[in-house]
Each structure stands twice: as C-alpha cells, then as structure tokens.
Simulated scan of single mutants.
Amino acid sequence: MSVAKKVTSIVAMAMITFTMINYTSINTYINRLKYDTITVQKPAQSLEDQVKDEAKKRRKDPRDAVIDRVWKKTPGYNGVEVDIEKSLKNMKKDGMFVEKHLIYRQIPPKIHLKDLPPAPIYRGHPDKQMVSFAINVAWGEEYLPEMLSILKKHHVHATFFFEGRWVKKHPDLAKMISKAGHEAGNHSYSHPNMAILSTSKTNEEIVKTNEVIEAVVGHTPKLFAPPSGSFNEHTVQEAHKLGMLTTLWTVDTVDWKKPMPGELIDRVMNKIHPGAIILMHPTQSSAASLDTLVKEIEARKFKIGTVSNLLSETRVLSSDTK
C-alpha cells in the first residue's frame, strides 16, 4: 500500500472515530435533558403574597337569618376574613409572616333577625359555639343567692326572665341580678296560659311586666319567654309589635321535678349543642347542679352567655379562626 493511501485511510478512520464520539456525547446530553430533573428555584414569596394566600384559606362566609321549618326564627351568623392591610402592618415590624399576628374582621350577613316576619325563636345559630341559661323566675327566690354566687365565680352571665308580680315583691333581688351583669327578660305579669289569652290581654301581660322591670332595673326587656312555653300566634305578634322576640328553649333541665344533681347534669349534657338555650328555674336541683354544669359545658369548649348575646350575629372567634 502506498504512503498516500495509508495517510488517507488513517484520516478517514480518525474522522469516523471523531464523528462517533461526537454523536455519543450529543445523544447522552439529549437523554439527560429528557430524563434528568432540573431544579428551578422559585423566588421567595413576598410577605404580602403570604398574607393574601392565608386570607383565601381562612375566609368563612356569613350566614343569613332564616325561618327554619322546624326551629322557626334562626339568627344569622357573621362570617370572618383576614384584614390584609392590618395584618401586613402588624407583621412588618418582624419582617416575616407570623400566624398569630393575623388580624381578623367579621362580615355581617345580608338578612338579619329584624328582617324576618314574626316567629318564635328556640336557639341561636347552630354554628355558634355558645349556649345560654334562660332562668325563669316566678318563685324560688331562696335559691337565687347561691346560683348568683356560682355564676359570679365562673364569670358567667345568664338571662333571667322575670314574672312582673315577682319583681314587684322582690325589687331588691331583681336589682341585684341586673347589677351583676345578667340580662332581664319578660316572663309575663301573672304567669297565665298565653295560648288562650285575647290579643288585648296578651298585650297587657307583656306591657305591664316591661313597665315594672324598667322601673326597677332601668331598662326594658327585649325578650319574652311565655310561661310553660305556651303561646299562640297572638303572643308572637304582640311581642313583635313591642320590638320583642318570643324565646323558648332546646334543652330543658326539668328542674321543677326536683331531679338529683347527677340526673339534671346528664340530661343537659346529653342534649347540649351549639346555640342551645337551656331552661332553668331557681330550684334546689339547679342550685346544686350549676357549678358542675358550668364546668362540664366549658370543658366541651362552649362559651356561656346571655340569650341576647347568643342570638347576636357576633362570631365566636376563639376556635373559628384557627
């Protein structure tokens, strides 16, 4: 073989080798692009974007007041949302997102109790983690000091529905109850069966009691609790005309039957629910049960407040915003 042919052969072999090496390298690179995961670092999220994201997650829409098929008038319940502007201002001093520094604001519903036609009311909103003691007072004044002492110890306020005659006989007790921060409600004047009264007599029973209570405690009740839960359409209409709600209950202690404390407590705790109105009277059974009852209700994470507070649209925020 001549020298020229040898040189040509060597050059050809070199070019083939170079091409194969180059092809392999390109092929390997392409395969790596296909199958390798390329990590792209996301830019750090701004504090404002973090707060806005949390605001979307935490918003809860308000609920309108309605006439329920079973429970009749049901109050509305405020929604809740993060106040982005105030939350950002609260966090800027730290320069970072801090959950506990979120600021919330409540969103009122569009339809309120006052917008609904006359109807009785049995409970607060079923999403509201609160209950109320509705204590009807027409007798049993000897048990009131003990009950008031227990409520004071636990910083709990109740609604006392006063019979008008009782307030006239015991004005000092009525004043003491009101000064302790409890709510005064109307329980008729003479404890009649409201279901059989005429419209004029119904009006008289409610108005006369309002006048007595206003004269003694200084304000006019906004809630009317018919004796024994007995009422008719006239009752509800007359109360409504006077700017009052006809209120009943969903949990009955049946304390007038003199149950043992354990029985009364079990009866209540087996039926307790968000928005419950718990009917009581000043009796030995209720006085003996009240301390434990308050502890057990609060252990279930319920707040205890007046009936008016229960029926308000104000949201209980302690657990709702977590």
Rank of each mutant, 00 (worst) to 15 (best):
L264N: 01
K57T: 05
K303S: 11
I111E: 05
M269D: 05
S200F: 15
H240C: 15
F18N: 13
N203S: 08
R315H: 00
S308E: 01
I297S: 01
K303D: 11
K93T: 10
W71A: 04
K56A: 10
H157T: 02
D252Q: 11
T283L: 03
E263T: 08
Q41Y: 14
K60R: 07
A158D: 03
S200L: 15
K169Y: 01
L293Y: 07
H112G: 13
K114G: 14
V316W: 01
V156H: 03
V217L: 02
D127M: 01
F161K: 11
F133E: 09
S286R: 10
Y122S: 07
S286N: 12
E142H: 05
G124I: 00
A180V: 04
K322P: 06
N193C: 01
D255C: 06
V207P: 00
R59W: 05
E298Q: 13
R58I: 15
G164E: 08
L197H: 13
Q50L: 13
A134C: 10
R63I: 13
D115T: 15
K241M: 06
S149W: 08
H182K: 09
S230E: 12
P126V: 03
K92A: 13
I103D: 02
M147W: 00
H154P: 00
H125K: 00
R59D: 07
H187Y: 03
A14R: 14
V254Y: 14
T74K: 04
K169Q: 07
T202F: 15
L311N: 06
K93A: 13
A288M: 13
K93L: 11
V82Y: 05
V131Y: 15
D255W: 00
E183L: 10
A276G: 02
P126Q: 02
K322C: 06
M260C: 08
E233Q: 14
N31E: 15
I265E: 00
A299H: 14
A134G: 08
S286F: 10
L290H: 04
R123M: 11
L310R: 05
R105S: 14
L317F: 04
D115F: 11
L113A: 09
L173S: 11
V66H: 11
P117S: 07
I278D: 00
K92R: 09
I107G: 09
L102Y: 01
E163N: 09
I213C: 10
A239I: 03
S190F: 07
S198L: 09
W256H: 03
H112A: 14
G305L: 01
A134L: 12
K258M: 00
E205N: 06
T250M: 06
D291H: 04
E263C: 05
T202L: 12
V212P: 04
E211G: 03
P226D: 05
M1D: 06
R105H: 13
I16T: 08
E233I: 15
T8N: 11
G124C: 03
F224Q: 04
K241D: 02
V11P: 02
E238Q: 10
T199G: 12
N90M: 12
V82P: 02
E214Q: 09
K175R: 10
L144D: 05
V131E: 12
I297P: 01
T28D: 10
Y23Q: 15
S318V: 13
T209W: 02
L197A: 14
V66E: 11
L279W: 00
T250N: 06
L88Q: 04
V236W: 03
R63Y: 07
E205W: 08
S188D: 10
E146D: 05
L311P: 02
V251S: 04
N210K: 10
D115P: 11
